[in-house]
Design a protein around this nucleic acid. Sequence first.
DNA 1: TTGTGTTTTACGACCTCC
DNA 2: GGAGGTCGTAAAACACAA
Length: 224
Amino acid sequence: MDQMVLGSHVYPYTTPTHSQCIIVNQTDGAPSGDGSKPVKRRRKRRSKGSSATNEDDVATIGAMLRKRKLTDEQMNMLEYSFENEHKLESGRKEKIARELGLDPRQVAVWFQNRRARWKNKKLEEEYAKLKSQHDTVLLGQCHLESQLLKLTEQLSEAQNEIRKLSERLVQETSANSSSSSLSVEANYAPIEFEFAPDTNYNIPFYMMDSNYLQNMEYWDGLYV
DNA sequence: TTGTGTTTTACGACCTCC
DNA sequence: GGAGGTCGTAAAACACAA
């Protein structure tokens, strides 16, 4: 492990293999001039492959930082600290930086990035949870729709059956009407379904006797 | 080895709070 | 106004398939 001394700090870093990241003075370049909102200006960085050879780079060595991967130990300590508290007040930052031999700015940046990762993770978890709930609701909807279809078919069959029986009864009673003073309507007044959700289902229910209901296998589903 | 996708470190711009 | 936050992004570091 190499070390790099900047100011009063000693930074650990792994020797870069082929490139460096050099931060050029952030305020360089032309000012915005007109006093309007300052133009966003990205710092310049050394691209891969170029080398730090001239005096300018040497002169700005104080502002030159290699991108240092934190050691496992530093990472563990930071993670432990993050678990305790996601926010980082000044005193704590200084303390952690001292203990880990890092620049306080590095600690602050690490916490910023860690919070961002934590937030992304929470968002992903929330998304997965909502998606799961959505899928469950969709499944339930499918199930209910298939049930509705099945029940609609059963109702239609039952209505047909009732109509046939009703017609037969009318025929039989009209054939016997000469010998009877009672009308069909008087004995079998139409009964309406109180629970019928739709007026189309308010069919005359002439055959409302126990034998008929017992033999109506069509209604099994409804009475379950 | 190299191309490519992902993660990590670092920073600028902007915002909020005291 | 300064300190510390988020957000978006650059670029190094890393992982891994081809």
